[in-house]
């Protein structure tokens, strides 16, 4: 299983490849978070729910 130290199981990707796939996920999450924050601010402007 761990004969090639550079590969990550179970996908058989190299470390660099795995990191790249991960980076897309992280970027997506960041954008999603920023957008959600902005959407909440806009909703708060029109219908303030914090009092």
């Amino acid at each position: 299983m761990s004969d090639d130290p550079d590969k990550v199981w179970p996908t058989g990707l190299t470390l660099k490849e795995a990191e790249e796939v991960h980076s897309y996920l992280i970027d997506g999450t960041r954008v999603f978070g920023a957008i959600a924050l902005l959407a909440h601010v806009l909703v708060a402007v029109s219908t303030p729910w914090l009092g």
């Binding site: 997506g28 999603f32 957008i35 959600a36 806009l42 029109s46």
Partner: peptide, 14 residues
């Protein structure tokens, strides 16, 4: 895709 999604997500409130 993320940009397009983000734009549509805030568009109605905007």
């Amino acid at each position: 895709t993320m940009l397009q999604f983000g734009g549509f997500a805030i568009m109605p409130f905007a």
